[in-house]
Design a protein around this nucleic acid. Sequence first.
DNA 1: AAAAAATGTGGTACCGTTCCCACATTAAAG
DNA 2: CTTTAATGTGGGAACGGTACCACATTTTTT
Lengths: 365, 365
Amino acid sequence: MVSLPLIKVTLNEVLITKKNDITIKEISKLSGTSKSTVSRVLSGTGYVSTEKRQAIEKVIQETNYRPNMIARSLQSKQTKTLAIILPDVSNPYFIGLIEEIERVSEGYGYTLILINTMSTGADKVKASDDPEIKALHTVQEKQVDGAIIIGGEIDHVKVSSQYLKTLNQLNKHIPIVIIGQKIADCDVIFVQRHINTGMRLIVQHILSLGYRKIGFLGGKPGVQVTEQRLAEFKRLADMYTNYSDNNVLLNDYYLKDGYQGIEQLLDQSDLDAVVAINDRVALGAIRRLHELGKIVPNDIAIGSADQFPDSDYYIPSITTIDQHNNSLGKIAVEQLIRSFNSQPLLTVQSDLPDLVIRESCGENK
Amino acid sequence: MVSLPLIKVTLNEVLITKKNDITIKEISKLSGTSKSTVSRVLSGTGYVSTEKRQAIEKVIQETNYRPNMIARSLQSKQTKTLAIILPDVSNPYFIGLIEEIERVSEGYGYTLILINTMSTGADKVKASDDPEIKALHTVQEKQVDGAIIIGGEIDHVKVSSQYLKTLNQLNKHIPIVIIGQKIADCDVIFVQRHINTGMRLIVQHILSLGYRKIGFLGGKPGVQVTEQRLAEFKRLADMYTNYSDNNVLLNDYYLKDGYQGIEQLLDQSDLDAVVAINDRVALGAIRRLHELGKIVPNDIAIGSADQFPDSDYYIPSITTIDQHNNSLGKIAVEQLIRSFNSQPLLTVQSDLPDLVIRESCGENK
DNA sequence: AAAAAATGTGGTACCGTTCCCACATTAAAG
DNA sequence: CTTTAATGTGGGAACGGTACCACATTTTTT
C-alpha cells in the first residue's frame, strides 16, 4: 500500500546558529562596564549609577539578552525546576493534577519537568533499567529543587525494596512529595486523600436507594488505592448486604477493564448495583451493558468512586464521588516550597469528598 | 462551615541536607586519582588503566554518585532537554501528543519541560506578561536544546507581531518545531496535518447516508484549524447541499460548546446532520439533544472531524475521523533531533486520516 | 576640615563538569 | 638498544554566571 504524503514538513534552509547566545561578558563590553556591574543590574542588588544602569539596560534590550539559567544554577545551586513523576499522563486523574501542579509551580517561578514512567519501553532486566528508578536518577542528575511523585511503584501495597532505597537516598538531598497513601520506612512528605470517606458516601447512597446486591468493579490488585477502597467496600457490604467475594472483580483502571469486567462480574454473581473504581471503568461497564441490552440504571445501577472530567455529559451521566483531586496538586507544590524555605510543613485542611448524584444510579429503586 | 481535616500531610522532622551532592572531585580524592581520570571513566573515552577504573567505579557505586547535569550542560552547551509549549494540557488532543513526545524524547535521552500557557492567570498588560511570550523566554533561559510548540497564538489566523518577532528571534538560537499549520514569515520547522482530507471524509460519509441539511458546530473562530475545516465544509456543502451561513455556529472546542451550541444552531437552521469540530463538542451536543428528547442518530446525525480517546465508548459511539495525531509527536521530536545533528529535514510520509464509522451518524437515513 | 559613611566599580575566585595539553611510562618497531 | 607509537595520568583553562572584596569617589556627619 502506497501511503501518500500527508504530513508536510517545511524544509527550511535557515542555518541555526547553535547556542551562540550573548553572554554577560559581551553585555559588559558593549556597554563599557564590567561583568560585575551588569550582574548587579540584572539582580537589582548593590549600587549602580543611573547612568550605567541605563546604558546596560539599553544593550540588554537591543541584544535580546536573557541570563543563562544553567550558569546561574551552577553557582546558586538551585535550578528553579520541579520534577513530576507519574506512570501515565493520559490518565484523567493525573491530568488534572499535572495542570494544577504546573499552574501553582509557575506562580512560584518554577518550571516543570515531566517524567512519564510508563512511557519507557525498556524491559525490567537490571534495576537501573526500571523506568521508575531511572526517573529518580534523572531527578538527581538534573538537580531539580524538588520532586512530586504520583502513583506507580510507591502506590503499591508492597513497594520494591530497591526502589524504596533509591527514593530514601534521593530524599536526603532533595525534598520529595508523594501524592498517595503513606508507606512505612519512607521519610518523604506525603499528601494523601481520605479514600474511605468517598467509598462510604457512594455505597451509602446506593444502599439508600434500596439496592442490596452490590458489586465492586475495577482497580489493579496490589495497588493501595484499590485495596483500601475495596476494604472499605467490604466492610460496608458485610454490614448491610449479603456480601460474597464473588461480588468483586479487580483488573485495572481503564475503559476496557470496565467493558470486559462487567460481563465477567455479572456472570459470577447476581447484582443490581455495581461500584466502579472510577468513572472510566464505569463508562466501560455502562457501554458493555448497553450492548448487552441492559439499561443503566433501570436494569442495574452503576456508581463510581472517583470523578473524572466529562462524566456529567455521558448518557447516562455518572453518579460519582468528587475527591477534589486537583487541590492535592496545589498542596504538594506548597509543601515543597515550604520545605525549600525550611518552613515547617503544615497539616492541611481541605473539603471532604462530595457525593455527586447524577443519573447512573437512578432514583429510588 | 467548618472543614474537617481530610488531607493529611506527615510532618517529617528529617533535616534535608540541601544539595550537598558529592562531586567528581571527591570521587577522585576517595579513589586516589584525579578529576580528569574520573571524567574519563564516566564518559568512557580516553585511556584508563583497569586498576584505576575499578577503584573509581567502586567509589561511584558506594557514594551513589551521579554527574551533575547542570555543570555538564554549562560546559557542553547542551542540556539534553526539550520544551513543549501548549495552551491546555487537559485537552485530549494535546494529551496524546504529550505522551508521544515524552516517549520518543526519552528514547533519545532527552528530558521534557512542560509549559502550559493557559495556566497563567496573568493579565495581558505588558507584552512580557503574555504567557506565550514568557514561555519562549523560559525556553531561552533554560537553554533547552529544542522546543515544540502546539496550538495557542501560532495557531491563530492572525498571529500577534510581537509574538512572531520573539519566536523568530529565538529560532535563531534553538531549533523550534511547531505542530500546526504553516504561517508566513516564520522560519521554524512545521509539522502539519492535512486538515481538509479529514473534513472531506466525514462530510462525504454523511452525504452518502443521504443527509442533505448539514450543519457545522464548534471551534474557535480565528483559529487556523477551525477556519480551514470550515472552509472545506463550506466548499463541499455548497457543492452538494443547500448551504447557508445559518448552518454554521462557531464558539470553542469544549464540551460546553457542543452542549450550548447545538441548541442555538438548531434554532437558526433546520438540520438533519451536524459535523462537530471534535468528539468533545460532539459529545456535548449529543448530551444536550438527549435532554431535549432527541435521539442521535435517529432524529439527527452527529459526526465529528477529530477523534479523541474514549469516544468509542459513548452512547451512541461517535462516527469521527482519526487524524493519527499522535504520530505528529514522534515526527516533531525526530525533526528536532535531525536538526541537532545538522541532518536535512525530511518531508515525512504518513497514513491519511481515516474515517471511523460508528453509531452517531447511523446507517442509511 | 577631617573623619566616617554611603555610593559606585572592577577584579577574581568559585560552582562541577569537560577538554586540551604536557608529561610519564610501557610496548612495539627499527 | 634506540626510536616511535601506544597507553596512562594529572594540571589547568573554560563554560556563564554570582559573590565577595578591595579600592575609588562622593556625600554626610562631627
